[in-house]
Amino acid sequence: MVNFLKRVFFVDVLAGLALTLKYTFHRVYTEQYPTEKPKLAERYRGAPRLNNDPETGETLCIACDLCAQVCPEDLIVVGSERDPDTRKKVLTTYTFDTSRCLFCGLCQEICPTNAIELTQDFELATYSRRNMVWDRTRLEQGWDRIDYGADRETASGRESSRYERKTG
């Protein structure tokens, strides 16, 4: 009998509706992504970076080639030459193909000097495939990527972004 009355008066449906009504007065969970950048975890593995020594400005990479060997996709190419005076290997070129990267983090794990590092930067979209292969300058300095207008005023000295030009 009780079950019958519950069925007639739509108790099961109303219980669900009461719950959704409760959430109408609740804090909104949605993140406003392009305008509000999410704060990513410290360990997040995003865009690669080749670190320089903050004091001398010289690269930390000792061209040991371990990152290239450990990479599952073989996408790191380390170019080096031997300094005739010190008999040490010196880094000349370094390319990193982000289009094939799995972001597994094995390269930064094995690096003995913390030279290659995957940063919290995650906006890697680009207009051409060629832009996905990062050379040494881009790895060291970061790249001038598309600014989706999050903090347009504060972006230092950056002219109107490519996105703006596209949309007019």
Binding site: L40, A41, R43, Y44, L102, F103, C104, G105, L118
Partner: peptide, 15 residues
């Protein structure tokens, strides 16, 4: 997924 990100460094393909 946020916990995964904090511990593993990635959300979906965590390695």
């Amino acid at each position: 997924l946020k916990l995964f990100e904090a511990l593993f460094g990635a959300r979906l393909t965590t390695h």
